[in-house]
Amino acid sequence: MTQSNDHTGGIVLTSLSKSYGSVRAVRSIDLQIAPGETVALLGPNGAGKTTTIDMVLGLTRPDSGSISLFGMTPAQAVAAGAVGGMLQTGSPLDHMKVRELVSLMASYYPHPLDVGDALRRTGAAEFAGQWTTKLSGGQAQRVRFAAALVGDADLLLLDEPTAGIDVEGRREFWQAMRAVAGRGKTVVFATHYLEEADAFADRIVLMSHGRIVADGPATEIKARAAARTIRGTLPGADLAGLVALPGVAAADRHGDTIILSCSDSDAALRPLLGAFPEIRDIEVGGGSLEEAFLELTAADKLDPEVVR
């Protein structure tokens, strides 16, 4: 990680913002990614992941802020063939066969992979002779993957590469990706699957409502994500009072049972007993990853200082 402060070495996003009308898609994010890192942009739909990726690829112009890719602007990096991207949409060009389309994409780059190699790695070799208009959704996704890969660019950006793919297809996709990332490429991918981010990325950048709400090694984010939940029986509970306790991110009630999602359950527990002495049957447990993920991305409740 010695290069993480080297402003020419990797990806540097500085105070990057983009709005669409009144929707603030990306709100002044700062992010540095060192060469060779594999980073997951994790967040729910509407978090600003796609907008961020589009700006890094030069497809969308930021309202403010700057982007440096290996010391270049996005346009320069794209022109130099330093960037490969897999976008969420894009049906392969018509009147072409799969192999032809991947060859076409390869022809734009200075040092492309062998086309046959790219097709094999992405699992597209078996239908390489097929017309692009006759592909299934999963096959088209592999073609887009091959098109992103074949340029052998130093930076790969993948926007929800496994969206709409079945479990088996997802597993195969990440196997292929692992081989690529092992070759020293910088890989940034957007996903809303926590397991994917955890299994594949060195580092997770959690986005919500256009902001980065957490950023760290996958293990750290996972640990943080394993936030504690306090359960107890408290008839007629005052939810507002519970939420106001230190360390409590959210409070919920099911009948007489209250559930407190905590960023720090220890800090919450002590005043809880003092403020609500009638509480009983207290349990402290780890929440599920999905719960924690939702918790972390509920940005309105979070203090960015704490989460970062």
């Binding site: 497809l59 049906s91 340029g151």
Partner: peptide
């Protein structure tokens, strides 16, 4: 226009094609 509608134009635009 057809290529744009298919979305592939965006894919081409992130290649070094001038």
């Amino acid at each position: 226009a057809r290529d744009r509608a298919s979305g592939w134009t965006r894919q081409m635009r992130i290649t070094p094609l001038r």
